[in-house]
Design a binder for these strands. Structure first.
Length: 254
DNA sequence: AAGTTTGTCAACCGCCTTAGA
DNA sequence: TTCTAAGGCGGTTGACAAACT
């Protein structure tokens, strides 16, 4: 199957946006919204592809974008979240109001990575390491929940139940989880998460034994096969659990 | 002052996921 | 169930500016 081009390239402009184009795009979106990005440029009278319009809007023109340098707190938050989430910039951005994934990615590559490289590994937060160690313990001590008797919750249900603080991350599919695991595995400081990473929830305080209750309470959306849980959501879950337990209370504020 | 290197960041590219027909 | 369009994501590029030689 040949992938259709994202847009009709002929005659469409590329490169930096002009002030006039910005104004046109902003006016159009403020007036009509952005229901269909592909159709938008034509309707707005822009010689750009929809993808370019979307990027310009989400990374620059959106009214809730926070401009200017990152504060120390924001940088610390990025570092800590990167420790947890790896290169999942959109997930990190979801926890930094007003900042875009692109911006965070740039800050990471231009500032934070270098800064961390200068620091010796031992200078990183003890609490971060304790968090990583805690997660490693789960990997060592827990078994995966794969019982076919447990009815998978829908991704939508799961997302709304659980990850309400994550804006638009692509949660919920086996492939995504695979991708997440790849990211995690490639992160230098991250514990490797095997298939047996996730605990037997029936042994946990928050979960009851019945599959019906599990379906309701289990925040992981155990969609089919493989890992049993949605890794992204599970990461959030464990992270919040640790915070509740007072392990990393002052690490990051959500 | 001119040339070169380095840093920054907006924008693009290609792949993946999702929704809907 | 399959196919396709659209949206979203992370990696990468390239233009520009600042710093350096």
């Amino acid at each position: 199957m040949v992938r259709a081009p994202c847009c009709e390239k002929m005659g469409l402009k590329k490169g930096p946006w002009t002030h006039e184009e910005d104004q046109t795009l902003m006016c159009y979106i403020q007036r009509y919204g952005h229901g269909n990005w592909r159709a938008l440029p034509k309707l707005a009278g822009l010689l750009r592809c929809g993808k370019s319009c979307r990027l310009r809007w989400t990374n620059y023109l959106r009214p809730d974008i926070k401009r200017g340098n990152f504060s120390n707190e924001e940088e610390e938050t990025i570092i800590n979240l990167h420790e947890i989430l790896g290169n999942r910039w959109s997930a990190i951005a979801a926890r930094l109001p007003g900042r875009t994934d692109n911006e965070i990615k740039n800050v990471w590559h231009t500032h934070l990575k270098k800064r961390l490289n200068k620091q010796s590994p031992s200078s990183t937060s003890t609490k971060q390491h304790s968090l990583v160690e805690e997660m490693s313990k789960f990997e060592e001590n827990t078994t995966i929940l794969t019982s076919p008797s447990i009815t998978p919750a829908s991704p939508q249900q799961s997302s709304s139940d659980f990850s309400s603080n994550t804006e638009s991350s692509s949660f919920g599919t086996v492939d995504n989880r695979d991708a997440s695991v790849k990211n995690i595995d490639s992160s230098e400081n991250y514990p490797e998460l095997g298939e047996d990473f996730w605990p037997d929830v029936s042994s946990m305080e928050n979960f009851s034994a019945s599959s019906a209750d599990l379906q309701f309470q289990n925040p992981f959306s155990p969609v089919s096969t493989d890992y049993g849980f949605n890794v992204d959501e599970s990461m959030d879950y464990w992270y919040n659990l640790f915070i509740k337990a007072g392990e990393v209370q002052d690490l990051v504020e959500f």
